[in-house]
Amino acid sequence: MVKVIVNGVEVEVPSNATVLDAAEKAGFKIPTLCHLEGIFDEATCRICVVDIGGRLFPSCRYPVSEGLKVTTESDAIRKYRRDLINLLFATHKIKCWSCVRKGGACTLLSLAKDYGVEAPVVCSECMFFGIDCLVAKGQPCLGPLTIAGCDAECTKNGMPCIGCRGPITSAEVWKSAIEFYDDKVKKDELLSKIKLFWNKYMDMISRYVEVKR
């Protein structure tokens, strides 16, 4: 057994434990993505980075040693984790509306919520809270095009999204969202909703809506 100090809390853990185990025992939650106990410990996602002696190390891989001092949370660490989540979304095909992970099963989304990352669309919120899709019911909901972060207050109450948080800028997402709307929602209804809040983005929007439909 060795003694480890996590955020000032002293815990005793077996000598073959990792910093992640120690933090858990001390009652601090460190986010993980790629780590799977006993299956995968290559530390590739880097989301579990902690500060050890002024340098960042992934806690899922770092072995404990006697008297090791670890900081699991700080403004800087939060910033790096936020950047990492942003990088994940940069290559992620954000098609939350057709994803199978419903009701908070997506770790990435809950992390994005925790760290205030504004990359996903409102559909992710519906998935998170397990709300039935309004677009599938034929309603002109702007969820697939709007930046998430509103906790789905409208759709929770059965109202289609009006896009008050602004449109997502990724062209990829726009393309797949328009494909998703196809045949489900009337074009005129959709356009009039878009005009309501997003008039200044009409140039960009017409590129997708006119051409595709």
């Binding site: 530390a43 590739t44 996602c45 880097r46 990088l87 994940l88 940069a90 290559t91």
Partner: peptide
Amino acid sequence: GKCLPCRVGVKL
């Protein structure tokens, strides 16, 4: 291409 920051970040 193993870790995220190098694989995606450098591309960005």
